[in-house]
Structure formats: C-alpha cells, structure tokens
Amino acid sequence: PQLADQKTLARQIYEAYLKNFNMNKAKARTILTGKTSNPPFVVHDMETLQLAEQTLVAKMVGSAGALKDREAEVRIFHCCQCTSVETVTELTEFAKSVPGFSSLDLNDQVTLLKYGVYEALFAMLASSMNKDGLLVAYGSGFITREFLKSLRRPFSDMMEPKFQFAMKFNALELDDSDLALFVAAIICCGDRPGLVNVSHIEVMQESIVRVLQLHLLANHPDDTFLFPKLLQKLADLRQLVTEHAQLVQEIKKTEDTSLHPLLQEIYRDMY
C-alpha cells in the first residue's frame, strides 16, 4: 500500500507539472534538436533582436511598445522579467496542486514560494538551454549565449552563470517526470527562513524526496548516484539565486529600469 501511495504522489505531481507549465523539457528538446517544422527565429545581434521584437515579443508582451526607445539591454531585461512573472504564476498553480501544499499555513505557503520560485525557475530554465543559447517566446525564438554575453555590464553577467549551471544540470539527463518531483522538492523545503510550521512542511518534504529517490532509481537504473547528485544541485541552485538576487539589486540601484511588483516582493528581504 505504501508503494501505491508513493506512485500516486509521483503521478499527481507529474500531472500537475504537465498541466501548469507552458514549456517543458520534452517540448524544448524537440525544438532544440530541430525536430519541428517551424524552427525558432535566432536572435544573435541587435538587428535580429529588433526583428524578433517586432514579431515574437510583441505578441508575448503587450507593453513592450513603451520600451521601444530604450536600449537593448533594458528591453531584454524587461522581457526576462515578463517571463519570470509568468513562470512564478505557473509555479504558484503547480505548488497548489502538490498534495498537502494548500492546507499549509498561508504565511508558510508565501514563504515557500518566495524562496523556492527562483530556484525552481533556474532548474527548469536549463530545459530550454543548450550550450549555444536559450529558447524564448514560448519556443518561437532562440537567443544566443554569445549575444547575451556581448551586452554591456551588468546585463552581460545575468545569463552566463545560468548557462554554466544548465550545462552541468542537463548532463544528468533528467526527464520531465524527474523534473516535476525535483521542482516539488525545491518548493516544499523545510529550512526556508521564517517558516511557522516547520514540522508540517518537513513531513511533506520527506514524502516528496523519498518518492523522488525511488523514481530516480526506477527511471535511471544505470545512474545509482543520481539522487545524491541532485541533492547537491539543490545547494548549487541556492547559490545561483543568491548571486542573481545580488545582481538584480545592483541593476535596480545603478540602472534606470523598473522591477515588476511581484518580483520586488520576492527579492525584498530575501537573503
């Protein structure tokens, strides 16, 4: 009976993942490996960026027109924020579908999302990346790593650490069923600062982590160390988010750009 419960939990979390996220690894890999009839439009310089903005981004971000006279770095930063807000919204819906999450203390739900969404976001972002670039605009565009590196500082420092993480993370060859449990484990984490009912969350976390361990053993029988490797990735993601939050604070201080209110809430008093 216990095994049946664990399988049910794994299935519920995987179904919530497929239902709530617009992009997933299977979709992204199909596009990145050229197995679609519509290959993504490649953004690799200022000219192709402008072309993409006139077509792909205009569809995605209605307010992009207000930024048309701003420099490319600011426009790209705005697009990153829009994608982040959308993913945070998806992650919130996903979290609510994880069994037990919605019955947690509401303050604790807020805390778990505040600290978990960026770690989850960067873990999932790896699915849309290869060594050369990143899928954008729902997979209709591909922005090259070199172009992102060529932007002026501090904007050029934004994505390169995510690519470096993604290359190592993608080497683990997780699929969406693994990622669904990994993302749930990131969110249901008992050691976030300020949690009220830690024991309640730890019970949830233990069952998700146990299911993740069993799932990895079944899904990757040749990689017996995959589970401890993934636990290490949790620590790497925390570091990645800390550095990202510092960079965003620097951009906010030194650049004339606005930060979306939802992202402001998340970054405020974070670390």
């Binding site: 209605g62 307010s63 807000v85 819906e93 609510k96 303050n107 807020v110």
Partner: peptide
C-alpha cells in the same frame, strides 16, 4: 508576511486573477 507579499498572496488565493505584465 502576507501584507508584504500581496501579489503572491493573491495568486495563492485566486488562480483566476491575472498578473499584469
């Protein structure tokens, strides 16, 4: 905490209200 995270709180309580991009 809920007061400092009004949008997150709203997202948690009401899935139908969109977040202005």
């Amino acid at each position: 905490l809920k007061e400092k995270h009004k949008i997150l709180h709203r997202l948690l309580q009401n899935s139908t209200s969109p977040v202005e991009l």
